[in-house]
Design a protein around this nucleic acid. Structure first.
Lengths: 236, 236
DNA sequence: CCGGGCAGAATGGCATCCCAAATTCAGGAA
DNA sequence: TTCCTGAATTTGGGATGCCATTCTGCCCGG
């Protein structure tokens, strides 16, 4: 099963106070996002601590972290259970994410300087290049980087924190986000529109465009989830 | 110092798995909100567990809860420290809260039935009555109830959960929310406008009105915080 | 009088043990 | 065969002890 890396290896252990718990949370989160632990699957404290050679304490803490990310439910005597992720959930999540990123885009348009705009232009250009050459993985990374940068540059820590939490949940559907060409083209166009709004410092337009962009993404993800949730809900 | 009520008293102890930790969190949250523990004040695990006659485990858990509510920062060897709450923080918080409640209001307007509308009308009427008779405490409660009901009725658990978390932080300034008469009148008017939009099932209007309403509230709170943050930051 | 360093205290993180509740499963009665 | 019962197992919550780190304050040298 190959544990990614021991928590004490390297020297990152002392970085944060609860570095170990966070490392455990990362490991488990990864398994959940990648579907190694399916929805409904159980995460038992004692099993995990044995596997990772740790005591239950940090594992327990990690499970709490995942719980408040909304990834698991913790029930007594049953272990933590991975929550479902279906079309309705995706729509609910992206409705909020759309609002958050929309605000962020508006704020960025309002206060952006030439340096920040250049940074975004550069990132946008790179993304477009990846798009044209069909490098989907790189396209996707650049895309995510743009979204994250906008949220960061909005300068509202509350938005950033909330966004991070929700994205962690929403990313669960990402591995199946092989969007259809139509949606991809639409997304690219929407990114272009945002850049225009940013260049024009048009906050209202930026907010509106970006919020719609995220709404569309949500609908797209929901459609994919709905499609494969319908026939077969259970899996190995 | 009078501990509100022992966690094992009554029988609510077995309600939730982590009932004790949540009770501890409530106690501490209350102290923070009421300012008994000022920003920068320290919350030491061992002190609290001694005071509450508990072991450190649930106290520790409670502190994590407060941490992800954004009320405290936890640092090694220094205890948990109450985070600051100033005008900028309030504006950041209410920017997001405004967006969330705005969406919620829009969704409610979209899908509201006569029964739900009646419930809101009744609550609104009661709030107006309290307003006219100058019963500020009851007015405030009814007001909060309306806000919560709208968020709940929007039917999006993500909105509800996110809102709850942020409100916990925003409420820190509430004890000083003795708003000036002008703002009060404006707030009342905005509530009236929302009811109109709901009656008309006008989602766009409801969203816009409610988002602005919350923005104004945020600005009002920020003004109060800014005013008293200036001269004297420290207190007993 | 002031600054550096050392010893003790303070403090959160981790490990470990015990407990209560719930789940599970075997065995027996109908 | 089916269903009920009860005992063993499973599992998370709580208590306690130890450890590493850091903070505090005192003492000594300059």
């Amino acid at each position: 099963m190959t544990i990614p890396d021991a928590p004490e290896s390297g020297l990152a252990a002392a970085a944060t106070p609860t570095a170990i718990a966070e490392w455990v949370a990362d490991v488990l989160r990864d398994r959940i996002v990648k579907g190694e632990v399916p929805p409904g699957g159980r995460l038992v404290e004692r099993k995990i601590s044995a596997e990772l050679n740790l005591s239950r304490t940090p594992v327990r803490e990690a499970l709490k972290l995942l719980h408040n990310d909304g990834l698991i439910e913790i029930s007594r005597n049953k272990g933590a259970v991975v929550t479902r992720y279906d079309a309705a959930e995706a729509l609910d999540l992206f409705e909020v994410i759309a609002a958050l990123e929309g605000i962020a885009a508006g704020r960025v348009a309002q206060s952006i300087g030439t340096a920040e705009l250049d940074e975004l232009e550069e990132l946008h250009g790179r993304m477009m290049a990846f798009h044209r050459t069909g490098r989907h993985a790189e396209y996707f990374d650049a895309n995510s980087a743009i979204h994250d940068l906008i949220v960061e540059r909005a300068g509202n820590p509350v938005i950033q924190g909330t966004h991070k939490r929700l994205i962690a949940r929403a990313r669960r559907g990402r591995y199946l986000a092989i969007m259809d060409p139509d949606r991809l083209a639409q997304a690219v166009e929407e990114h272009g529109l945002l850049m225009e709004a940013l260049r024009a410092r048009d906050a209202a337009a930026a907010e509106s465009i970006w919020r719609q962009h995220l709404s569309h993404t949500g609908e797209s993800v929901a459609a994919l989830l709905g499609a494969e949730d319908g026939p077969a809900a259970a899996q190995a």
